[in-house]
Amino acid sequence: MGRYIRNRLLWMIPVLIGVAVMIFSIMYFVPGDPAAIILGKEAEEWEILALRQEMGLEDPFLVQLGRFLWNALHLNFGESYFTGIPVIQEIAMRMPRTTLLGFLSMFFTMLVGVPLGIYAATHRGQLGDSAVMALALFGVSFPAFWMALMLVLVFSLRLHWLPATGIGSWKHYVLPVLASTISGVGTQARLARSSMLEVIRSDYITTARSKGLKEREVIYKHALPNALLPILTSAGARLAHIFGGSTVIETVFSIPGIGTYMINAVNNRDYPIVRASVLVLAILFSLVMLLVDLAYAFVDPRIKARYAGAK
């Protein structure tokens, strides 16, 4: 098992290098000139060229790539072309907010979605099932930003219970987490339901019942651990989705996180920020995927055996 973890971590290195090269190349070839944006509308062509040379943007592709990779290896991602603030500093400050938002959202999505799905599965065809599926449809249909604005209208504007924007207290996180959770709960509930339904039909569930176990034991001790696998997969995917989609929530609620940092940078062609943010997110994803895979092993001994043995 330890060897498996070690191998996975080692594999992250070529993956990250690949990501770094890719994001560098993409930004290199995308049209749009940061020097022109910095100097503004009135700039002359020779001025722009001079700035580009100063910024190292006129060097050959491989030279620039090499410089970037070398610096990245030393965790030096440079400074923002626009504000001059070191990128790694900004990321260090914003990362916790985005990850907190992400993990809280994930946590509540699971906390609410999975039991709802199980409930629907065990009450299949009855009113409870329909109610849960209706709720799921609701959550899945409405876009997160619409949900966010609706929540703000109700809880901030009308009721004055919660702040509408910004960060600062735990209260500021309630609406953003709520907005992303509601959209996620629907998907999770449906997935949990279908996964459970499939597992409940298994023979070993009949065996468990025939042993005289209480229905609760049958569901939670026998069915659920087996139904977890697809649920875990979607948890990982959901987390990826949350990090990527956090920009919308961050913009609506003015939360200074990685999402907005990256989007602004893309618009401004602020290369150092884009490269660093993408790399950091890639690292985060890889670690999350590793955690999900380890969770598999924890839940299913067959997979654990495969990790320990085969690799």
Partner: peptide, 8 residues
């Protein structure tokens, strides 16, 4: 106060 979204 920084409020990015115009509706907000």
């Amino acid at each position: 106060k920084v409020i990015k979204d115009s509706a907000q």
